[in-house]
């Protein structure tokens, strides 16, 4: 890495750390820690955006960094922590599937993501084009996190981490999306989390728990009682 300027090295470091964090999320049992990891991911994203903004001198990246700071580093983790306290799930953890197997699946997904991103990276003109593979890997790893979880809160963290991955992808491929789109996406994420907050309380009120297994059980009962239809939820 002798010929690579220091800021680019730092950017690559950020990308690598993001990938590492995704694996950490995959193996994390406790919900509070998951939220903290998400906040850390947001902070890394902020660093990457700032580095890139400084390197390329594009003004809109600073705005985008500000948006990341406000939304992903401060507001969302704060909101999720607050929800965790209000819902009293602070000490919740969940049994995971076999962790080594999940990790191996994650590795396979990373290889797949790099393979998929190869032709795109080859065409890119941005300095960070090699990170596209990492961004795609983060998206897919978050997806695995989502489908291996049974608690509503961890699925949401997976969802938000997927959004972070997409954001990182947009940044490394094209130095971010047009401003109006970025604001729109941020607004959507914000509304999504607020809607989910309401939703958690509804689920909680109904079942005394945020465990989604309750939902599946009810569906099967309903199906047996005459709801009919499919019982396979959440597969994709």
């Amino acid at each position: 890495m002798a010929g690579v300027p220091i800021d680019l090295q730092l950017l690559n470091l950020c990308a690598a750390l993001l990938l590492l964090l995704s694996f950490a999320m995959l193996a994390q049992r406790r919900i509070v820690n998951l939220v903290n990891l998400l906040a850390l991911q947001g902070a890394l994203l902020l660093c990457a955006t700032l580095l890139l903004a400084w390197r390329t001198g594009q003004a809109h990246l600073y705005v985008s960094a500000l948006l990341t700071l406000a939304l992903k580093v401060l507001f969302l983790p704060w909101l999720l922590h607050r929800l965790i306290r209000r819902l009293q799930v602070y000490w919740d953890s969940e049994p995971l599937l076999n962790i080594p197997v999940t990790m191996l699946a994650g590795l396979a997904v990373v290889v797949f993501a790099f393979g998929l991103a190869q032709p795109i990276s080859a065409l890119g003109s941005t300095a960070t084009r090699n990170s596209i593979g990492i961004a795609l890997a983060v998206v897919l790893l978050s997806f695995i996190t989502m489908i291996t979880r049974r608690k509503a809160m961890s699925q949401v963290v997976g969802f938000l981490s997927m959004e972070n991955g997409l954001f990182f992808g947009a940044m490394s491929a094209t130095y971010g999306m047009p401003m109006v789109v970025e604001f729109g996406v941020a607004l959507d994420v914000l509304v999504a989390v607020l809607v989910l907050g309401v939703f958690f309380f509804q689920i909680r009120e109904q079942f005394d728990s945020l465990d989604l297994q309750h939902l599946e059980k009810l569906r099967e009962e309903a199906a047996a009682a005459g709801g009919g239809g499919n019982t396979s939820g959440g597969d994709n």
Binding site: L136, V139, F143, M146, A152, Q155, F159, M162, E163, L166, G169, V185, A192, V195, L196, F199, Q202, I203, E205, Q206, F207, L212, H214, L215, E216, L218, R219, A222, G227, G233, G234, N236
Partner: peptide
């Protein structure tokens, strides 16, 4: 706010949310 409607809403949110994330990519 029935249990079945909560499940339907959750499924709707998660499946469409994940789906639409692909569209963003």
């Amino acid at each position: 706010r029935t249990p079945a409607s909560l499940e339907a809403g959750w499924k709707y949110f998660i499946l469409c949310g994940v789906g639409i994330a692909q569209a963003l990519f």
